[in-house]
Design a protein around this nucleic acid. Structure first.
Lengths: 328, 328
DNA sequence: TTGAAAGCGCTAACAT
DNA sequence: ATGTTAGCGCTTTCAA
């Protein structure tokens, strides 16, 4: 009852209990130096009065916020949505609250986001980087930071990072395309350093493995906004006469599927990174590389918590394994 | 430069500028009572030193946080993901930061979430309610609150609410099923008050409109966890011999599609609420009712901001219109 | 136009 | 075991 309105402070509780605010604070935080009796009495009063601690005051004192700042580069992408969700769930377990900001693949917004979140004294950052040239060390300062999905190259050595085996995953997917009969495989990937470019490597490896020629005309690196992606895909299908395509992520996959639909083609084999349940119901079979989104989310949080506790530990790069989902 | 590490305070700026902290504060917040000259001088020092205001201190003084607490009932659902994203974008425009907590359709978690967020002195709530029996007025106190998607019945009169025309949308979808030749339409909806039950009404209306019998055996209300949804769907397809199904949301749609796939049926017509781009590429055509997720997100934020400014305004229920997406 | 000082709610060091 | 008090960084009255 009386859970309402105006904030009840530790001071009022103290008065009601006939003790000092220090004693109330002790009861509140289960600290030593207080008799069980008074502690329980105070705690009763606290629950009864609907007291709610002010995080601001608490955090201001301790210079620590129990908040994690998450910066996602593309909130429209299902992969990031899933990871974000997992991050939230895991953070809750550690009693952290999550502040999420979407950078929309825009480095300016990302910098802005970091600044805002630092103003809130977040006790840690989890970032899917947008631009490798951002000067993270100076932006995040000494706030523990973990990167996922993408890590600006030079930073891998400096920050904890959670990645998946992009190269291997892409290789598996492309090999499956070839095994299913493809002989001319085109690829569209994003220019993003880590994920995009590693996947491209995997693609090349697969071709090599199967002694297919690597043809630059079949390789398109799309800008993040993917303005030209449609043209690229159309070129691969119509001019280059590919019989299979690999899409680097599910935003690009959408372009591929759209084009296949427009051209009314049924003879193309398709593979992509990032598995989504809906793929099971597609007309066009889509081979996909499933990322352990939940695990990624959990690991980033774990890594962050770990670093908060042990700031000295050398940065660690975790590579999680992926799983090929065959469809035909 | 020097954007690093330790927090630089207003005090240090004051010393550097040779003024008092009050003056710095005035420069910082563009307040009157300061000469242009000193203001500019101070602002230069501020940018140069990489000063970052402490939100905690600021909010503690003003008892206001510039944060919006968002509680989503099912983070796995694409609809909520999209709305959440829109909320974030819109909130950013007003310089608000968003704290999101996922209640996972669990009223206990939802209550918990409200409490946590209140401890952060969020200046507003946006909630997709999980349980109509929650005592919102006492939980949120005098914090401005807007509901969306679902509104506990009794609260509609007390809080601002953003809903879509569920009844009409479902009616349109079911009518389209009938127009495409269906004669026995089954339905699975969630038990959720607002969205689920209104959609059920629309379903009934459509049948009436086309003078088809309303058969309770064809109507399944699924619990939120949807444990039995598979059984329900199978019953509708196998025993009741439906030739069309309406799924109340996209979590239920997934169950429907899975069952159709397992049974290898190609003669079923399907409709659902919540349009997703991927639907375009499905083997099984899915008629869908598109909710204006972006608008919903924006409107909830607008309504919230509006209420903060005008606490006295009578609560308003907004009904946004939906769009039928035909597929066959 | 500027400064001094109170105080937001809390924790923690120190005193009793 | 409990109380007193300083102070976290800031805004805002009041005084100069």
């Amino acid at each position: 009852m009386a859970e309402n309105n105006r904030r009840i402070t530790i001071k009022e509780i103290a008065k009601k209990a006939g003790v000092s605010i220090a004693t109330v604070s002790r009861a509140l935080n289960d600290r030593p130096g207080i008799s069980l009796e008074t502690k329980e009495r105070i705690q009763r009063i606290i629950t009864r009065s609907g007291y709610r601690p002010s995080m601001f005051a608490r955090n201001m004192r301790s210079q620590q916020s129990k908040m994690i700042g998450v910066i996602v580069s593309n909130a429209a992408n299902d992969f990031f949505k899933d990871v974000t969700r997992a991050i939230q769930d895991q953070a809750t377990k550690y009693d952290f609250t999550v502040l999420i900001i979407n950078s929309d693949e825009d480095p300016v917004k990302e910098r802005q986001a970091i600044k805002i979140l630092r103003n809130y004294d977040v006790s840690g950052f989890i970032i899917a980087s947008t631009d490798e040239t951002i000067d993270y060390p100076s932006l995040v300062g000494n706030t523990p930071t973990v990167f996922f999905d993408r890590a600006p190259k030079s930073e891998i050595a400096q920050f904890d990072t959670v990645l998946v085996n992009n190269e291997f995953g892409a290789k598996l997917a492309v090999e499956e395309l070839i095994r299913q009969g493809a002989s001319k495989v085109g690829i569209v990937v994003s220019g993003v350093q880590t994920s995009g470019q590693e996947r491209l490597k995997g693609y090349k490896q697969a071709l090599k493995e199967y002694q297919l020629p690597i043809n630059d005309k079949l390789i398109y690196t799309s800008d993040v906004q993917q303005l030209k992606a449609m043209d690229y895909v159309r070129d691969l299908l119509v001019n280059q006469k590919c019989d299979a395509l690999f899409a680097g992520d599910n935003t690009l996959l959408m372009v591929v599927l759209e084009e296949i639909k427009l051209l009314n083609r049924t003879d193309i084999k398709v593979a992509t990174f990032d598995n989504i349940t809906w793929f099971n119901y597609f007309k066009q079979p889509v081979i996909s590389v499933k990322q352990p989104t939940t695990t990624i989310g959990h690991e980033t949080v774990d890594a962050l918590i770990n670093r908060m506790k042990n700031p000295q530990l050398p940065p660690k790069v975790r590579r999680l394994s992926v799983q090929l989902i065959r469809r035909s």
